[in-house]
């Protein structure tokens, strides 16, 4: 594949106390790709994404975003990055416009381009009529959209979305999936989800985590190869026999 690497994770490991949450995970993301991060609850998806976003330092391993080391030049690397955490990082007492402007300024959007970027982000996330609303009064689905708008307002090369479709109704779901596909044309997107058909619909590649370990990295077609995607996922992530689970 010729397209350049936008994000590379090498041997990421993270301990929470003595428990190993993520164990030696490596993968790369290329421009124009939408990568799905799959796994059961507690498989280490959110921890991995937090490390990719520079919000949590890895115990060992390194992350490069657009060939910039996240550990060495966090300011430059994070400027190429948009991140939606599992729980949208919203200030409930702010208005949508004010909040998005604040997020844009944090990501070094220049004042000259602020209004234009704000309008574009709101339009992409279907928030045009909600600019004056207090975030705390919005429904969960709209809060999720504000969270996504916050992650894309500075037009980052890499967008990291942690369960972006939680709490959306079916119509919104389709809009957001279309949006993710559009984001994956110019830049690259990495998203985590439990929903297999979502991966099937929007992702080019999938990475599957189990108990913090990377157990699958390949295209959707690879995953689909044996039989239908659901049973291959369940097969891959199934509980291992007891004796095998012991170190």
């Amino acid at each position: 594949m010729a397209s350049p690497v936008t994000l590379s994770a090498q041997h990421l490991t993270r301990f929470h106390g003595r428990q190993c949450a993520v164990n030696d995970v490596s993968f790369v993301l290329r421009r124009g790709e939408v990568l799905g991060l799959l796994g059961h609850n507690g498989a280490g998806k959110s921890t991995t994404l937090q490390m990719l976003a520079g919000a949590l330092p890895p115990s060992t391993g390194m992350v490069e975003i657009c060939d910039i080391s996240l550990a060495r030049r966090p300011d430059l690397a994070k400027a190429c990055l948009g991140y939606l955490p599992e729980q949208p990082p919203l200030y409930r007492d702010m208005r949508v416009d004010d909040y998005l402007r604040f997020a844009a300024r944090l990501h070094r959007v220049t004042p000259a381009r602020l209004a234009e970027q704000l309008q574009l982000a709101k339009q992409r996330c279907g928030l045009l009529d909600h600019g004056r609303r207090l975030i705390g009064t919005l429904s969960k689905g709209y809060q999720q959209r504000v969270g996504i708008a916050q992650a894309i307002i500075h037009q980052p090369t890499v967008v990291i979305l942690d369960e972006p479709t939680v709490g959306l109704d079916p119509a919104q779901l389709r809009e957001i999936r279309d949006l993710i596909r559009t984001l994956g044309i110019d830049g690259s997107v990495i998203l985590s989800t439990h929903l297999l058909h979502e991966v099937e619909q929007v992702c080019d590649r999938a990475v599957i985590l189990r108990e913090g370990k990377l157990i699958f990295d390949g295209s959707i077609d690879d995953l689909r190869q044996h039989c239908d995607i659901e049973s291959s996922f369940l097969q891959l992530t199934a509980e291992r026999p007891r004796e095998a689970a012991l170190p």
């Binding site: 937090q50 976003a53 520079g54 919000a55 949590l56 966090p74 300011d75 430059l76 690397a77 994070k78 400027a79 990055l81 991140y83 955490p85 599992e86 729980q87 949208p88 990082p89 919203l90 200030y91 409930r92 997020a103 944090l106 990501h107 070094r108 916050q150």
Partner: peptide, 14 residues
């Protein structure tokens, strides 16, 4: 506590 820390943590600020 409100998880808004992640917005600041992932932003290009020190």
């Amino acid at each position: 506590r409100n998880q808004t820390w992640l917005l600041l943590a992932a932003a290009p600020i020190s």
